[in-house]
């Protein structure tokens, strides 16, 4: 007869409840929350009023959704490598892409890593 399986679910590491903060945030110190305004990232599943978790410590890579500092404000775009050149694209047909000058370093402020949307009004606040 096989011996009973060890009680793996009761090892101390499994006794802590899931922490959303631990799951969603790589580094507390470099993480900032921003509020989304506008519809240009709809195609990427980001809507007006969403809460954005932004990590400032990540190196922005093509394909990622980034927060750029443009014309005196934070702007949300996808960083894309198009024909060998970097550009910032919206996720909405009405917004044209923005070519990045190869010489000038764009100010990419942080990488958007999660989006939080409250579905039922009134439940978001403790």
């Amino acid at each position: 007869m096989a011996p009973p399986a060890p009680p793996t679910s009761l090892t101390p590491t499994n006794l802590t409840a899931i922490s959303l903060e631990d799951e969603l945030i790589r580094c507390r110190a470099s993480t900032v929350l921003l509020r989304v305004s506008g519809e240009s990232m709809q195609g990427a599943g980001i809507a007006h009023g969403d809460l954005l978790i932004v990590d400032r410590g990540l190196e922005p890579r093509p394909g990622q959704i980034v927060v750029a500092w443009l014309a005196g404000g934070f702007t949300l775009k996808r960083l894309v490598c198009h024909r060998g050149r970097l550009r910032l694209e919206a996720a909405h047909p009405a917004y044209p892409p923005l070519e990045l000058d190869p010489g000038a370093e764009p100010h990419l402020w942080g990488v958007a890593v999660h989006v939080i949307r409250t579905l039922e009004p009134g439940t978001g606040h403790r």
Partner: peptide, 15 residues
């Protein structure tokens, strides 16, 4: 209170 109050966090434009 950009990092200490949810009601005061900065806005990122998606426009």
């Amino acid at each position: 209170a950009a990092t200490t109050r949810l009601a005061a966090i900065p806005v990122v434009q998606a426009r």
